[in-house]
Amino acid sequence: MIVAGALSACALPQVGPNKTQIEAGSVAKGGDAFIVDVDNRVAKATDVIPSLGFSRDFTNAAQLTSDTIRPGDVLGLTIWENVDDGLLTGATGNATALEEVQVDSAGFIFVPYAGRIRAAGNTPNQLRESITQQLDEQTPDPQVQVRRLAGDGSTVSLVGAVGAQGVYPIERSTRSLSSMLAKAGGVTVEPKIAQVTVIRGGSRGKVWFQDIFSNPSLDIALRGGDRILVEEDTRSYVAMGATGTQARVPFESKDLSAIEAVAQVGGLVGAASDPTGIFVFREEYPKVANNVLGRTDLSGPQRMVYVLNLTEKNGMFVARDFIIRDDDTVYVTEAPFTQWSKTLSLLIGSVTPLASVKTLAN
């Protein structure tokens, strides 16, 4: 019976391959994966995360000034005439207000008695002088005030995980990316995993939301027509083996360590997990693979299996420093005791029917 149970142990159910089976697939044993024990050097060499950011075309762009009038802007005009019965004021007063005068697509506005005047490209003061010059020929000593009411000609669109999606004008208080996001109600996902994409013509850039505030150069000046998309980080990893949960798991932070990845799925299972056998399967960048293995001849993505042993000296610190990347597979092997327990269960299960027969006979 003992011999039969021992033989049956070879086919016992298990959550996945054990350490011996994984190591059998190493390049050293004829397999196609490099198996590497993680230490401080390896953790540092693999700490490579694709960076997000804006190109110089974005970061070098100066802020728009509210003084520059553009097609689509809405202006407010007030005209005073130095006569009792003027061209515009009539007999009721000497001031006339022209509200919500919109600059047309060609950049012009129409002012009674002054005609069609170019507004786009001028400051409110320059436009005031142009209108005054035209009216001076019609009425003595006219006084003109020009106000820029809204920047409808310079707008951006915000979509995705923001408080209020829509089209917003670039105004004095919303010239930068952070201020425009605030205008739209901020982000509605966890800030530490929020990503902001800005599309400007044929160019685009993506940054982490929190980096906008920690790195002022990323708080770029906006341009009319910019499209801003806010979305949650889409990175994920797969957790398998003797862990609390086996699933595809989204990242909960910008930088996710091996310890955090295991903790996210419920941690190690005390009665089943082997703390000496935490494996991270990854298609590694060739440059990183060469660096880790001390080689220079590898090209193309390399199959790498990183082994973490929490019981080693500083093993917990190494696991804290080892960074998980998108599409990694984190696998925790079962402890040898677990397989032994299954074998005992099989033996006990084999004995039980015989005991039952004896009981019935009595």
Results as ranks from 00 to 15, higher is better:
M1I: 12
V3N: 01
L7Y: 11
L7P: 06
G16M: 10
G16Y: 09
G16C: 08
P17H: 04
A24Q: 14
A24M: 02
S26M: 08
K29N: 15
G30C: 11
G31E: 04
D32A: 13
D32K: 12
D37E: 13
D37F: 09
D39Y: 06
R41Q: 02
V42P: 02
K44S: 14
A45F: 05
R56W: 12
F58K: 03
S66F: 00
T68K: 05
D73W: 00
V74M: 07
G76V: 03
L77N: 09
I79R: 00
D84I: 12
L87T: 09
L87Y: 11
L88S: 03
L88Y: 00
T89C: 12
G90T: 05
G90F: 02
A91G: 12
T92V: 13
G93L: 00
E99Y: 14
V101E: 03
A106P: 11
P112C: 03
N122F: 08
T123W: 06
P124L: 02
N125K: 14
N125G: 14
R128Q: 09
E129V: 02
S130N: 14
D136V: 06
E137Q: 15
Q138M: 15
P142D: 01
V144F: 08
A150W: 05
G151F: 09
D152Q: 11
V156I: 04
V156E: 12
S157D: 01
S157P: 10
V159Q: 07
G160M: 02
G166L: 07
V167E: 02
S173N: 14
T174G: 09
S178M: 13
S179K: 10
S179N: 12
L181Y: 04
A182K: 11
K183L: 10
P191N: 11
K192F: 08
V196H: 05
W208Q: 08
N215D: 06
P216A: 07
L222R: 03
L222F: 04
G225I: 02
G225M: 05
D226I: 07
D226M: 00
L229D: 10
E231T: 12
E232S: 12
D233N: 05
R235G: 01
T243I: 10
Q246W: 06
E252S: 15
S253M: 09
I259S: 00
E260M: 03
A261M: 08
G267K: 04
G267M: 05
A271Y: 13
S273M: 05
D274I: 01
G277Q: 09
G277F: 09
E283T: 15
P286C: 07
P286D: 02
K287I: 12
K287T: 14
N291L: 15
R295P: 01
L298H: 12
L298G: 07
M304L: 01
E312W: 11
N314R: 04
N314Q: 12
V318C: 06
V318E: 08
D321M: 10
D321P: 03
F322E: 04
I323G: 03
I324R: 03
T329S: 10
V330T: 12
Y331C: 10
T333F: 10
P336W: 00
T338W: 05
Q339T: 14
Q339W: 14
K342F: 14
T343H: 06
T343Q: 13
S345Q: 15
G349F: 06
G349T: 07
V351Q: 07
V351L: 14
T352I: 15
P353V: 02
L354T: 09
V357I: 13
T359H: 15
A361H: 13
N362P: 08
